[in-house]
């Protein structure tokens, strides 16, 4: 059983870490664009913000299991197959990007307008404002946002078993549920709880450290 659990845990970690990297890589710029194109911001553009917001809402309204099936053609086009751990990463990223973009959006909207105004008055370009003002100012919130997103990804990844993605959730369903292996079920739950707890605490720790550092 240990062997099974180790394999499943590694699969889960692989799916979550790789999809988290893609999610942040794509979701962060998307969230930034949502903010800066919004009304009275540094690059207001009603059209872009309207379209992006609509797309984000649309993707978020699909339950993950449906999204996973719905985008199978895209998965096949990107990975070459729609089955397996790699193939599960694609829907995971698709589901998490809009979520993370909204998290980024709310974190960046929290920044005091005056600080951005001061940067504009100093002659900063929009890109300089994003990189040197907005991201550093919102860093603690962004770190917490990444934490929440990773935990969400962990939750979604449990469903990846449906397309042969493997992982802890898949193990729980195949052995714990279908084969009445209560011991496997309990172990998987225990593992998931440990994972979620450690992700959340490391996120909190990093955010706290940044905030504490700024109180020096």
């Amino acid at each position: 059983m240990m062997e099974m659990l180790t394999k499943a845990t590694l699969e889960t970690l692989y799916m979550v870490i790789v999809s988290a990297i893609f999610t942040v890589g794509i979701g962060l710029p998307l969230g930034i664009i949502l903010v800066v194109t919004s009304e009275n911001h540094i690059a207001t553009n009603k059209w872009i913000s309207g379209v992006l917001s609509y797309v984000v809402n649309m993707t978020r309204s699909l339950p993950f299991i449906i999204l996973m099936i719905f985008i199978i053609p895209i998965t096949r086009w990107l990975i070459g197959t729609s089955i397996g751990t790699e193939a599960a990463i694609v829907p995971l990223v698709f589901a998490a990007i809009p979520f993370f973009a909204r998290v980024v959006e709310s974190a960046l909207h929290e920044i005091d307008d005056g600080v951005i105004e001061a940067a504009i008055a100093m002659g900063a370009t929009p890109l300089q404002i994003i990189i040197r003002v907005m991201i550093p100012e919102a860093l603690p919130s962004l770190v917490l946002g990444v934490t929440i997103t990773v935990i969400n990804l962990l939750g979604y990844s449990a469903m990846a078993g449906a397309i042969g993605g493997g992982g802890i959730g898949d193990l729980a369903i195949r052995y714990g549920y279908h084969r009445f292996r209560t011991d496997v079920m309990l172990m998987t739950i225990f593992l998931l709880v440990i994972l979620v707890q450690s992700i959340q605490s490391s996120g909190n720790l990093i955010a706290q450290k940044i905030i504490k550092n700024r109180r020096k």
Partner: peptide
Amino acid sequence: LRSERQKIGMIFQNFNLLSSK
């Protein structure tokens, strides 16, 4: 415009300093 703005300093009621720096 940005380069002209650099020749005009501005200070604010709420100071508007960067808390991250």
